[in-house]
């Protein structure tokens, strides 16, 4: 099936298998490999992307369901060679270790800030409740988000 995808502001017409998940299309067809597969069941959040303004697990959405809608991936955060404030804050606060959860984590945080520019700690925790991290204990991730917010 031929479908149109709007990814990071660019339109792509792609031939997509009906069974293909959004994650597969992003990774295999568009070579946007920032979103990772950690569990394939929407439990770890490594594949988180933003669809029509909200964070979703791209491993449990069929590509066909995302056709025509606005998709943002981790690759969209850097603008004109400048990192997003969240990305900078992650680097500056030691919020990145193995990095496998990082793209999904950042997209959950980005979706939060798009809706709520001044979240509380509880709101940050809720935003990343579906993003598992085995390296950091979340502490530095939460700290990074707070710092990114503070800069606004």
């Amino acid at each position: 099936m031929e479908m149109e995808f709007n990814v990071n502001g660019i339109k792509h017409i792609l031939e997509v298998d009906p069974m293909e998940r959004l994650l597969d299309v992003l990774r295999n067809k568009l070579k946007l490999t920032g979103a990772k597969e950690g569990c394939g069941e929407g439990e770890c959040g490594a594949c988180t992307i933003i669809l029509d303004g909200v964070a979703i697990n791209s491993c449990i959405v069929l590509a066909a369901q995302a056709a025509g809608r606005e998709i943002l991936t981790i690759e969209s955060l850097e603008k004109d060679g400048e990192l997003d404030r969240l990305q900078k804050a992650f680097i500056n606060n030691g919020a990145v270790q193995c990095g496998y959860c990082t793209p999904g984590m950042l997209m959950s945080c980005k979706a939060l800030l798009m809706k709520n520019p001044a979240p509380t700690e509880e709101e940050i925790k809720t935003a990343i409740e579906g993003n598992l991290c085995r390296c950091t204990g979340y502490t530095k991730i939460i700290k990074a988000v707070k710092e990114a917010v503070k800069d606004i």
Binding site: L32, T33, G34, A35, T73, I74, E75, L77, E78, L83, Q87, F90, I91, N92, G94, V96, Q97, G99, T102, P103, L106
Partner: peptide
Amino acid sequence: PIHDAYEKVKGKL
């Protein structure tokens, strides 16, 4: 920061 932090936050690594 960790040596590959920049590439990791960009999802490029």
